[in-house]
Design a binder for these strands. Sequence first.
DNA 1: CTAATAGTGTCTATCAGACACTATTAG
DNA 2: CTAATAGTGTCTGATAGACACTATTAG
Lengths: 233, 233
Amino acid sequence: MYRRHCAILRKLLSMVYRDSHGRTLDDYPRPSVAVDTAVLTVPPSGELSVIVIAAGLGASDDAESALDRLPGTFLHPGETLAEAVRRSLRTKAGINGLRPRQLRVFDEPERDPRGWVLSVAHADTVPAEQLNTRSSAARLEPVAELTSLAYGHSAVVALAVEQLREQYLAAPDPAGLLHARFTLRELHALHETIAGTTLQRDTFRRAMIARLVATGERSSGGMGKPAELFKIS
Amino acid sequence: MYRRHCAILRKLLSMVYRDSHGRTLDDYPRPSVAVDTAVLTVPPSGELSVIVIAAGLGASDDAESALDRLPGTFLHPGETLAEAVRRSLRTKAGINGLRPRQLRVFDEPERDPRGWVLSVAHADTVPAEQLNTRSSAARLEPVAELTSLAYGHSAVVALAVEQLREQYLAAPDPAGLLHARFTLRELHALHETIAGTTLQRDTFRRAMIARLVATGERSSGGMGKPAELFKIS
DNA sequence: CTAATAGTGTCTATCAGACACTATTAG
DNA sequence: CTAATAGTGTCTGATAGACACTATTAG
């Protein structure tokens, strides 16, 4: 009931409000606002990958409908951008529990042939197990092998990867890509995958160990000396 | 003529396009999109300051119309966000030659009592001389003394200051706040103002001198030993 | 001379990079 | 034993912080 009163008040205000040129809010043409999200992960293959989908236009049986874009949707009234992102990923890729971060707004007036569309690019990174691989239209694609995506989505992926790298310089596993307990070997491999370079083993160990908590437990089953299991904080 | 053809094609496409629910672009309610900009500077007073304006509602002779918001405007069709920012600063604060950078989108559906308005926050930093102080409605306000601004603009200022600090860790004077040639004393004072802390003189000198070019000229007119003038690259 | 500012020498603690060594497991 | 991986000792060079010293100007 309170929300309803607010909505009525807002409607009245928007009719009464006039800017310095005497225009009300309704006199301004408005753009459509979309969200597009780069969901990164590191699947068992060990390659930094991103979720891409095909255009949702009809049956799309032909070879033309390539996996060439990021999941996205239009912002609905009363919805925040984060909610729109979660909705688009839930309905188009079967992913839940995301905490998307904004990257930037793509605003070139001609960027979308369908009309005036602003796109707010988002990114998030999740463990591969959280991805619903049975989902019909979505696929994982290694970022290194991405050819150019539609709607300038390649730039979104590039920005997302860049920010992910910065995050992994600041903390051992900010996206929680590893299990609760992990060996330094696993963490080392993850950092090399994300950075796209090799990282010296001993230097890496000494840098990371200060930010980790030793559990006293040991890994088992692999070759060589069992390694200590660590956890975050 | 070419642009005109494009516009017609786009209009046709937007009528033909249908999403997975059979809706065209025009079937989606759209938000108004605004830009709001924090323009930072360091005036002769030596305090990091930001431009604030009063609401542009009519004559505004009363004491109610406080300087309580950042300059902003609604995005016009065919315009980029950067163009809207430049337009708003030109018309509302008499500032030209900006290169605004996007900070983030403020998207809470209820944030603006006038209706559904997304705000894309921007920031830029300019030398104080570039500001038109004769401008009627705009004033410089030290960021330390800012009380709370309307429309959540205080958060914009906080973000702008944070990013400015990061920029000044990466380069001697990325915003060009000093003249073409300057002493290390001037650069030191500027960095202390921006960082909001004191910075050790000798360490600062050694860190900066590697990124500057000595001109061989000396300062004059001040007390003490004349200092060498440096320039950027 | 003094006050004020510019600029340098140097010690120390820390740290990244690099290399080589030891330790512990499977088979 | 060998292969493989885990973990450590230690040297080097670079650098930030700190302190104290010298240098050059005005008045």
